[in-house]
Amino acid sequence: SASLEDVKTAVLGLLVILQTKLYTLPASHATRVYEMLVSHIQLHYKHSYTLPIASSIRLQAFDFLLLLRADSLHRLGLPNKDGVVRFSPYCVCDYMEPERGSEKKTSGPLSPPTGPPGPAPAGPAVRLGSVPYSLLFRVLLQCLKQESDWKVLKLVLGRLPESLRYKVLIFTSPCSVDQLCSALCSMLSGPKTLERLRGAPEGF
């Protein structure tokens, strides 16, 4: 439990870093931090981490990651405290083949985003970082199938509809809506759902 406290501190630090690096160059920093966060949550489900502190780590990670939004130009952003989304000039939600690297070039400044813009690109060529939603999407499927803490599952179920409104997140990387529907149906009809959940409301 003591070591998990250190892990929790590290994860919180990564969330803060991602919130900053999403809007700064090099964009590969945001890509790497995002991948680290998603990989860490995957390990929770792989090794069945069920301690309360592990659940709190997942809760905080999902609470942040499910706020990711994308505009029509595929640029990622996060809402501010007033709910207004600021889109990044440097990070996009497109999935890119590994051989192309985590970044790609664009020939010049991008068109203005639909929300308040981030800082304008400084040079004639900007390297865009790929932060594909499919990585998070796979972890969300694991959550629906394996999550043991009701608070975490409730958060994910509550945030998913709003995330799905931003269709560009889903359609720019390999996210299977069929698998999502299947996971939701299995969660509702499967007898093991109630068996594994802690803290579920009576009558769920």
Rank of each mutant, 00 (worst) to 15 (best):
I41S: 00
L188N: 01
S1D: 13
L18Y: 05
Y23V: 04
L141E: 05
V177Q: 03
A125T: 12
K8W: 05
L67S: 11
V131D: 03
E103S: 11
L135E: 13
E35L: 09
G199M: 09
R159F: 03
R198P: 03
S39K: 08
H29W: 05
P52A: 10
L78T: 06
Y23E: 04
S134H: 12
L144E: 00
K104A: 15
A183S: 11
V131I: 15
S48H: 12
M187C: 05
D94I: 03
K151N: 10
R58T: 00
I53T: 06
Q179P: 04
E97P: 13
V177P: 06
E97W: 08
K81G: 15
L68Q: 05
H40A: 02
Y23S: 04
S39R: 13
G129A: 15
I17E: 01
S3L: 08
P79A: 10
C93A: 06
G190H: 12
T114R: 13
S48R: 13
A200T: 12
P26D: 05
T172E: 04
R165S: 10
R196V: 05
H44V: 00
L22T: 03
H47C: 13
G158Q: 12
R75F: 06
V7N: 02
T9K: 06
K192H: 13
P132N: 07
V11H: 03
L169H: 05
C93V: 07
T193G: 07
L188P: 03
V85N: 07
P174G: 10
S28W: 14
K151S: 15
K145V: 11
P52G: 07
S39P: 00
P52F: 02
L153A: 01
L43A: 15
R58D: 00
H40I: 01
L184P: 01
L37N: 00
T24S: 15
R159V: 05
K167F: 04
P132K: 07
S134I: 06
A10L: 00
C93G: 03
H74K: 07
I53P: 05
N80M: 09
V168E: 07
R58Q: 00
H47E: 09
E5C: 09
L136R: 01
S48W: 07
L155D: 04
L153Q: 01
L22R: 02
L164Q: 01
V177T: 06
S134L: 04
S56T: 11
H44D: 01
L25W: 15
T20F: 04
K8F: 06
I17N: 03
L78E: 02
S39T: 13
A27N: 07
F204H: 04
R75V: 02
A2Y: 08
E5S: 10
L43G: 12
D178W: 03
L18F: 14
Y95C: 10
H74Y: 04
V139F: 01
L153M: 08
P52I: 01
E103G: 11
T31I: 13
R138Q: 12
K154G: 07
L14S: 09
S182Y: 06
V38N: 06
G118H: 14
V152T: 05
T24F: 08
C185T: 12
P109N: 13
Y23F: 09
L136A: 11
G77A: 07
R75L: 03
C93E: 03
H44R: 00
L68H: 03
L164G: 01
L15N: 10
L169V: 04
F204M: 11
E99G: 13
T172I: 01
P174D: 08
F137R: 01
G190A: 11
S1G: 07
K151L: 11
L25T: 12
S148T: 12
M96T: 10
H74Q: 04
V7Q: 02
V156T: 02
V156M: 02
V156E: 00
T172H: 05
L144Q: 00
L14G: 04
V156D: 00
E195G: 09
S102F: 11
Q142W: 07
T50M: 09
T24V: 15
S88F: 01
Q142K: 12
Y90Q: 05
Y95L: 12
D149G: 00
L15A: 11
S182W: 06
V139E: 05
I17D: 01
R159L: 06
L15D: 03
G101V: 13
I170V: 12
Y90G: 05
A183C: 10
P161Y: 06
L169G: 04
G108S: 14
Y133R: 03
R32P: 01
T114G: 14
G129C: 10
H47V: 06
P113H: 15
D82Q: 14
P109T: 14
L194D: 04
G115Q: 14
H74A: 05
Q19P: 05
P79N: 05
G77S: 05
F87E: 03
Y23N: 05
S56E: 15
A30K: 01
H29V: 02
S28M: 09
S173D: 05
L12S: 15
L12P: 01
T193P: 10
L157K: 00
G203M: 06
S134Q: 05
L194I: 11
V168R: 10
S107I: 11
E147K: 00
Q19E: 10
L157R: 00
S163V: 15
Q146E: 14
A54Q: 01
L140K: 00
N80A: 10
V92L: 10
I17P: 01
A125I: 13
L140A: 06
G115T: 11
R75E: 03
L67Q: 11
L37F: 02
H44I: 00
G108H: 12
E147D: 04
I170E: 03
A30H: 03
L155T: 13
L141T: 07
V84E: 12
S39H: 14
P109G: 14
L197H: 03
L25D: 10
V11F: 07
V177L: 14
F137C: 03
L78Q: 04
L18T: 02
Q146A: 12
T50V: 10
E202P: 12
S56W: 07
L51T: 10
I170C: 06
L153D: 00
L18M: 12
S28K: 11
G83T: 04
S3Y: 07
A70V: 08
L188G: 02
G115R: 12
L169E: 03
R138M: 08
R196M: 06
L188C: 13
G101R: 12
L43C: 15
V38D: 01
K145G: 11
S55I: 07
L184F: 01
F204Q: 04
F171R: 09
R165Q: 13
D178I: 04
P109Y: 12
S48E: 14
Q42V: 09
C143W: 01
F137M: 05
P161E: 09
K154H: 09
T9L: 07
V33A: 06
G83H: 07
S173E: 05
V92N: 07
A2N: 14
G203F: 05
P112Y: 09
L43K: 12
S55E: 12
V85W: 15
M96I: 15
A70Y: 03
S28I: 10
C91Q: 08
S134K: 05
P26C: 03
L157N: 00
Y133E: 03
L194G: 06
L15K: 13
L136G: 06
L37E: 00
I53H: 03
D6K: 00
H29I: 02
P174H: 08
K151E: 15
